[in-house]
Design a protein around this nucleic acid. Structure first.
Lengths: 240, 240
DNA sequence: CGCGGGTTTGAATGAGTTCAATCACGGTGG
DNA sequence: CCACCGTGATTGAACTCATTCAAACCCGCG
């Protein structure tokens, strides 16, 4: 629960016992191996999941096997608050790495946030952020070149990891195959590889053991038109 | 307000006076000509807008003029409930056709839905639907061919218009230039034109005065893998 | 008419895909 | 310790889908 606290607490000053309340909600802890499904298409979900550690992906697979990843989900991500008990999921969620999850009954979760206004505000804020990330994903794959797409996603993930870990570094640890990158960006695996190579030869990044180091953050952000403000990482100043 | 009632009322049975309350909220009516901006990038919005008539688009323009349309907004659409008073808008909203809008102060709106649980549920549903449309947009532009994209969007708009008008027809009235289609689908205007021509010669659609008629709905849905369930219209009883 | 916005068509170009081969690397078993 | 996998990354060559640029076209309107 610490990662969720860190993330949600980023936006709102929460008194400890408001979190106490949240973390003491009845729940089950679960783990999934890389590639394992967490939510299948058609599932009716009456749980809220919170990622405690590891990466998950939200995606859809078309008939002929094409896959589109909608979003990467990092520690602190919670889903599916939106759908609650009503609708069938039109997409799937899987573990990208080894993942540990907290599973809370929707009704319990709902009761908790409805009795704690600050908590509700915090989760409202998380939902705003998620939606902004979705919108940015549309712009990325709709109107950006392969080079811009890859660079832009790298910078986004870098920032989002920073938000989880509490400090911004130049390193991006990507503990999953490039195929996920390709399916997130609407590109072929081959072209992602070529594009990363290009970014390297142009001095924007370099590969280090199992990850990528950003060498020219500003130039890279400029090149791919990355503006971190959409991530809404600044702190919420509540008027009351 | 009738269109919003029609839309929101699809999801929840609302007692009339719950709507009465909503429609009697202090508000201003505004109109915009085609192309006029409603919300600019960087605006801090403390209003909720409801589209009473006409089409609007939510979009972002990149430095070099490339434009990506995130979503089309039809009568009954309400925005930006999510952002409320806190955040600056990272995208713009403009009128695609002549548009009439109802503008409600966020605080008034918030108070109204927080005292009317059913109303809150109804708007929760609308938000779920909006998010599903965004996700489908990602899949469309990320992993579908031009032909599939155009067909898929046509079918989506057809269904969404049906939801507003209360009945499903084969006609799609598109009162705006194809350039909007191009910018929504991440394609060039030229290619949209070519693709529409192809859909015509293959017998899926035909053009009628200022609009498009769907000739082979099922074949077309099959071809582009369109499944209307993501629109969450199931409570609609359509005459098809 | 003739203008102007929007659409269509053609030809050349280009970005990204596909297929296939090669490489790099960590793990496993002999 | 090394040979042999298997998975994922990279490279090359041919190809394709979509873009770009430019010209022609269409049509409603002053």
């Amino acid at each position: 629960m610490k990662t969720l606290m860190k993330r949600v607490g980023h936006y709102v000053d929460l008194i400890d016992d408001e979190f106490e309340n949240l973390s003491q909600l009845p729940h089950r802890m679960e783990t999934r191996r890389p590639g394992e499904e967490i939510v299948a298409v058609g599932d009716t979900i009456d749980f809220v999941f919170v990622i405690e550690s590891g990466w998950a992906i939200r995606y859809r697979i078309l008939d002929d096997g094409r896959r589109q990843i909608l979003n990467f989900m990092l520690p602190g991500a919670c889903f599916d608050m939106m759908s609650m008990a009503y609708a069938k999921s039109d997409h799937a969620v899987s573990a990208a790495t080894e993942v540990t999850l907290r599973r809370i009954k929707s009704s319990d979760f709902l009761r908790a946030i409805s009795t704690r206004p600050k908590l509700a505000t915090a989760f409202w804020w998380v939902a705003i952020q998620e939606e902004a990330i979705l919108r940015e994903q549309i712009i990325r794959i709709g109107r950006r070149s392969a080079k811009e797409r890859v660079a832009h996603l790298l910078l986004e993930l870098n920032r989002r990891i920073a938000a989880v870990e509490g400090r911004l570094t130049d390193m991006i640890d990507l503990p999953f195959p490039q195929a996920l990158f390709a399916d997130a960006l609407g590109l072929s695996i081959v072209h992602v590889s070529r594009t990363l190579t290009k970014l390297k030869t142009e001095g924007y990044i370099k590969t280090v053991s199992q990850g990528i180091q950003i060498l020219e953050r500003d130039k890279m952000a400029e090149m791919c038109d990355f503006d971190s403000r959409y991530l809404h990482l600044e702190r919420l100043k509540l008027t009351d």
